[in-house]
Every structure is written in structure tokens, then in C-alpha cells.
Nucleic acid binder design. Structure first.
Length: 510
RNA sequence: GGUGGGUUCGUAUAACGGUUAGUACUCAGGAUUUUCAUUCCUGCAAUAGGAGUUCGAUUCUCCUACCCACUACCA
């Protein structure tokens, strides 16, 4: 969710300013490769309607949606492997970086030692002169190690006691003293891959990125990125650091576990990790992508007006970086549902009908015909016409949050109840009510006016009142016979749809 | 521990330094209804604490508290 929101804000900003939204895959950590993850990201963005102008397609090809060309390909950093080394070396030559030969074990040891003394080991201006690197080793030793060993790295030489003045589009002016920062690894000889910091700066420069909108977790490395742009002598993009999405209860950022625990998805699409663990997705839970995107947009941003429902086009127009909230936003699953309800109501009955048909079929109901065919049903054969489904959808769409709710709300408009709620029958199936209900059955079966819901409703009411029967009790007595339960849709709505014959049949239980 | 960021009803948020601090979700109550739901109405509920600047501070400054992130040859 957090990743989608970040992508969304990038997309909105780019589109609003006539820019291109570029999808670059930052896969420089060979140890953390997750099969399927890249494709998952692309599919998720596509489902949300966040379509890159340039980037990697699901099958690994370059996408050319809006751009005629793809001047920045390839878009996967693992495929750009060859280009980073010379930039790392350029920094060494200019004196902004150096070669470090410390083994992972030696560094781990140094860390453990510092920790045992209650301190923190930090590779910086103080410690670097006690470590094995091109600043401390004789030049011939350095060239020998460079050629004959493969576990060295290039580290940035973080200056001592300098103030880096930075600007963030959301947070304004920020300054940091470089003495508190460390000598970050920029490039690793072992796999000949850069780390995030180098790859990001080099690629953003090469790809002509003008705005970097990313998560707050990157704010602490912003000074390093500023310094890198300066070292290369490149114009830097503008930066915006988005606050994190927080879990609904308690403190801390939203994590996969929260969704499992509290019963809502944290992934846009269902995700099955390589260990076979499944995380539910908004798509599979029945959310509309427009609702999901709208909800996400409003988490940490507001339009400055009271409008809450926005299409993607409206978001592109209304979005503005200075309305983005600085503080982290706690995610509220209830509001997500509210958004889906709103979008469900905005959908046409035809569209909802088409979405409902598969659900009906899963429940053993056959749907026949088209929207031009007449309304019909054959309950014995578990078959109904499409327009019958539509008339049900019209009736119940206001009561549902998801299309899947339709079945729970109105299943008895497709088949007769097989069980009757015990509590409700005990309460309403009393002799006097049943006697009245039987009379009502006769009344309906002999009903000869035009068969409309309104006629049935008023006829029914008039008939019951004129006999001075208790309206609620008689109605519920009938409702249980029709639906199996004492609560649900209006009797006239049900009777109108299922028809005289089915009505009579269901009333036989009384 | 260090560095950086943050703090308005339970949640998301609004408020040129001047408002009875608004709205939405949730929740509670009521109206409508043949039940349930919908709809409508009403209500509950907040400027973290303390100094300072100012005629006046949610808004500006400082301190404290709390929360978050970072502190990897991860992104």
C-alpha cells in the first residue's frame, strides 16, 4: 500500500506537470532477489491505473505507452550493471571516494567490539584511518589488492564537520552536519554492482529525473545524495519525502502482519511469496481499483476543499505537494470500505450485474440472456435471466460494500430457503400470524392488478390493515417463509421479483 | 545511544496570527420503514505539556514529553 501510494503521488505529479512517469527496477541487491516481485509490481500498478510512460514491462520488454522512444533503457539496474563502475572510479579520482578492503568479518568484528563497549561503530572520518583502505595502505599494495582480490568496495569519503543545506518539497529546509554521517559503500567489487545510493544518483541523472518523490525512510540519506550530485557536478532533482503509512492500532509503520491480524489487505493484489505464504489483496477482496486509489490519495494529502471522491483525472488536476501531510498517516480500514461503497453506488446497474454474474455461477445459478432479453426465472432449474439479475442489483446495490455482498443480501431471490432461523420462527410462526399469512397468500395469488412492486406493496398493506392484523408480525411471518430469516428485503420487493408461483410454493411451509 | 523527521476529536484532515476550532469515517441517539439495511436529523469527541514573542498563538520561537525513520558490502 505504501509503495502504491508513493507511485501514485509520483504519477500524479508527473502527469500534472506534463512529465513522464518512469518505472525503474532497483534490483542491485543480488541476495534479496524475489522471483515474481517485479512482475507483481507492474501488475499492481496497472490494476491501479498507474501506467508508466517508460519502464520495464511484465515480460521484460520496454514499455512505450506515451513516449515514442525509450532513450533511458534499460530500466532494470541489474541490466545496467556495466555503467556504474566508471562513475565510482571517477569519484575516487576526484578524491570524493576511496577503495576499502575491509572484509565483512573485520567490519562485523569492529561493530561487535564497539557494541560491547556500549558504543556504535561508524565508518567515518575518525575510523577510516585505522582501517584497511586506499587512504591508509601504500599505493602498490592498493593496486595489488584491486587486481588480485574481489571483496573490496568503493566508499564515499564523507567530509568532516560540514553542513549540508537541503530542501524538501514537503518539509522545507533541512540541514545536517556531515560528521554525524558515515562512509557509505557505493560500489561492490564482489558482484560488480552499485548500492542504492550510487545507482540511484547515476540513473536519475542519466534518465533526466527532475523530481524524486519517495518514502521518508530515505530522508537520512538525503545529505549523501546531495553530496554525490555535488561531487559529480550534476544538477540535482528536487526531492519530496513522503511520510509513512502507519498501522491502524498502536504505533509503527504498516506491515504485512497487521493485515493478517486485523483482517484487511496490505497488498494491492494477492501476493504469494516464495515460501508459499499468501497475503490477501485489495483486488481479490473485492475493492474497485478506483476506490483503492482514491482512498490512498487521501491518506496524507487533501485537496483543500471538502471533496472526497476523485477520479484519477481529477486527482491529477487537484494534486499539490504543499497539501501533502508531514506526519505519518494511520491507515483506517473502515474508510477504505466506505470508499468502496461509494464507488459501488456510482457504478451502473449493468456493470454491477456483469460483475455479479460470476458470483451467481459460483453459487450454482445459471444466468441466461442479455440486457435486451425479457426478465425471466426458473427457480427449479436454478436459472435466471440477465435482466432479472439486474433488477435484483438495482434493489440491493445501496446495501452492499462489495459485489460479493450481493449474494449474502439477496441469495433467496435466486433459490428457496432450505432452513429457517429458529429464533425467528419461534418468535413469528405463531398460530394467529400463520392464519393471517395464509389469507395473504390467497390474496396475492388472486391479485389481478398490474404486477408492479408498488401495487403489491399498497395492496398488501391495505389488505392487512383492513383485517386489523398486526402488520409487523404478519409480514415477518411471511418473510421467514420466503427468506428463512426475520430480517431482509421488503416483502413487496421479494414477491414482485419471484412471482406468484414461487411465492405460493414458498408459503406452503406455513 | 547518535542523527533527522513528526505531533489538531478514536481515525483521516480543515482553519491569511483574530472561527462557537469545520468536514468525513467510526460510534451513540432519534425520525422514516412490515423486519434489516438505506436515507435523513441530532449528538459525542481534538489543538501533547510548559515557557516566550504578540493586543491576540492551532498557527511563530525555545524547552520537555511522546511517536517514527535511519544508523548494513538492503533498498
Amino acid at each position: 500500500m505504501g509503495g502504491v501510494r508513493t507511485a501514485l503521488y509520483n504519477y500524479l505529479y508527473a502527469k500534472q506537470n506534463g512529465g513522464d512517469f518512469i518505472l525503474r527496477i532497483e534490483d542491485t541487491d543480488s541476495h534479496r532477489f524475489v522471483p515474481g516481485a517485479e512482475q507483481y509490481i507492474i501488475e499492481s500498478l496497472r490494476w491501479c491505473g498507474i501506467i508508466p510512460d517508460e519502464g520495464v514491462d511484465a515480460d521484460g520488454k520496454v514499455v512505450e505507452v506515451a513516449s515514442d522512444k525509450h532513450p533511458h533503457a534499460p530500466y532494470r539496474q541489474s541490466q545496467r550493471k556495466g555503467i556504474y563502475r566508471k562513475y565510482a572510479e571517477e569519484l575516487v579520482e576526484k578524491g570524493f571516494a576511496y577503495y576499502a578492503f575491509d572484509s565483512a568479518e573485520a567490519l562485523a568484528e569492529a561493530r561487535a567490539e564497539a557494541e560491547s563497549k556500549g558504543q556504535t561503530f561508524i565508518y567515518n572520518y575518525e575510523s577510516r584511518l585505522q582501517l584497511r583502505n586506499s587512504l591508509t595502505l601504500p599505493p602498490e599494495e592498493v593496486s595489488r589488492l584491486l587486481e588480485q582480490t574481489t571483496d573490496w568496495t568503493v566508499r564515499f569519503k564523507m567530509p568532516e564537520n560540514e553542513t549540508v543545506e537541503m530542501d524538501d518539497m514537503i518539509r522545507g529546509h533541512i540541514c545536517v552536519n556531515t560528521s554525524t554521517l558515515d562512509d557509505k559503500v557505493l560500489w561492490k567489487r564482489a558482484d560488480e554492482l552499485p548500492t542504492y545510493h550510487l545507482a540511484n544518483i547515476v540513473d536519475d541523472h542519466l534518465m533526466e529525473i527532475t523530481e524524486v518523490i519517495r518514502g521518508e525512510e530515505w530522508l537520512p540519506s538525503l545529505p549523501l545524495h546531495y553530496l554525490l550530485y555535488k561531487a559529480f557536478g550534476w544538477e540535482r532533482p528536487r526531492f519530496a519525502h513522503l511520510s509513512l503509512l502507519l498501522k491502524p492500532v498502536g504505533n509503527g509503520k504498516l506491515s504485512k502482519r497487521d493485515g493478517d491480524k486485523l483482517g484487511f489487505p496490505v497488498f494491492p493484489l494477492r501476493w504469494v511469496n516464495p515460501e508459499g505464504e499468501t497475503s490477501r489483496g485489495y483486488r481479490e477482496d473485492g475493492y474497485f481499483p478506483e476506490a483503492f486509489v482514491n482512498m490512498l490519495a487521501m491518506l496524507g494529502w487533501n485537496p483543500g476543499t471538502e471533496q472526497e471522491i476523485f477520479s484519477m483525472e481529477e486527482l491529477v488536476k487537484a494534486f499539490s505537494m504543499d497539501k501533502v501531510q508531514k506526519a505519518g498517516a494511520k491507515f483506517n480500514p473502515e474508510k477504505a470500505k466506505w470508499y468502496n461503497r461509494e464507488y459501488l453506488r456510482m457504478k451502473s446497474d449493468e456493470e454491477l450485474t456483469d460483475l455479479f454474474v460470476p458470483v451467481l455461477e459460483q453459487n450454482g445459478i445459471t444466468v441466461t440472456g442479455c440486457f435486451k432479453c425479457p426478465v425471466s426465472h426458473d427457480f427449479a432449474a436454478c436459472s435466471v435471466s440477465k435482466n432479472y439479475v439486474k433488477s435484483v442489483v438495482e434493489l440491493i446495490k445501496e446495501r452492499a460494500t462489495f459485489v460479493a455482498d450481493f449474494w449474502d443480501i439477496a441469495w433467496y431471490l435466486f433459490k428457496a430457503p432450505a432452513e429457517f432461523n429458529e429464533k425467528d420462527t419461534a418468535k413469528f410462526w405463531k398460530e394467529e400470524n400463520i392464519a393471517a399469512a395464509r389469507k395473504v397468500t390467497d390474496f396475492i395469488c388472486n391479485f389481478d392488478g398490474p404486477w408492479t412492486k408498488d401495487n403489491i406493496e399498497s395492496g398488501l398493506e391495505e389488505y392487512i390493515r383492513s383485517n386489523e392484523w398486526p402488520m409487523g408480525k404478519v409480514m415477518n411471518c411471511i418473510r421467514i417463509a420466503l427468506t428463512g430469516s426475520g430480517s431482509g428485503l421488503g416483502i413487496a420487493d421479494i414477491v414482485f421479483r419471484i412471482g406468484k408461483e414461487e411465492f405460493k410454493k414458498r408459503m406452503e411451509v406455513l
